[in-house]
Amino acid sequence: MSIPTQAARQIPVAEIVFWLVLAAGFWLWPSYLPLASQVLIAGLFALSLDLVLGYAGIVSLGHAAYFGVGAYAAGVLASHGWGEPFSGLLLAAVCAGATGFITSFLVVRGKDLTRLMVTTGIGLLLFELANRLTDVTGGNDGLLGMEMRPLLGTFRFDMYGKVAYGYSLAVTFVLFLLMRRVVNSPFGLSLRGIRDNPGRMLALGYPVHRRLIAMYTLASVYAGIAGALLAQTTQFVGTDVLSFNRSAELMVMLIVGGTGMLYGGLVGAAVFMVAHHYLSDLNPSYWQFWLGAFLIAIVMFGRDGVLGACLRLMRAWRVRAQKAALES
């Protein structure tokens, strides 16, 4: 077996192609840029969940909490007259990170089921808070008057979604590179160890709780930035950014894509949202049935998600090709 750190140093061609295709999105799917940028944002959000679920083994059904905190942070900043996008991202990262750090102590304590309940609870609490604090959040009606300034002082957010797409892609790419480094670092490897056998890791002398708290905080920062991106590109924030539904859909996206495989979140978000978009256009009333059927089919055929299934198919194909080469 190869050591993951070495594998990480050589970047496979497939990965380069993946990002090049995304960059070529401006020409490949020019009329679907608003959808594509929301896919990227959902993908980034799914990466965040992957950090805690796929790499640290913490199940969470309240991840929208940090997404929402980020969205509101960026939204409130922009609605108070400071619409510079990057400072919004920074503020969102700080606020979501702080919220994540504080709540991580509650989350990390328990085991799977308690964690599920605690994270759900945190999500519901923050949702209710946003609903109540109408002076800050606009409550149920949503936050009004977000005015975004042009990106880097030159690119105005346009209705075709070009700038939004470029912006989301750049931010997602940078954060992805960072995540890649983190999960393949000794820190990331220790977390995988904790995921698979926390007792053993504790016995080996690893500070299990502290590592989990660090990872959870990092994931919250990611979620916050994703939320801020959505707020800034939509130029609106409603209480639904904190909704349970958003957390649950996120979980579905990640599982559809595949957990603990870096690209699972991005692939899952793309599959889920494109299917959603296509089916709801076919029939705006009953599309959920088909989406449900589609998701069940995916999970039936690939237990480890779309990405896992693809990798397995590729491996099988390679083995067969090798065999054929040997026989001839």
């Binding site: 009329s31 608003p34 929301q38 939509t234 409603g238 639904d240 709801s280």
Partner: peptide, 22 residues
């Protein structure tokens, strides 16, 4: 041309963008 917002404002914004630009 009917588009579903699913009750979520960012979806509403996106589908409206598509209706206008596409």
């Amino acid at each position: 041309i009917v588009k579903d917002t699913t009750g979520v404002p960012d979806v509403a914004k996106r589908v409206a963008q598509e209706l206008v630009t596409n």
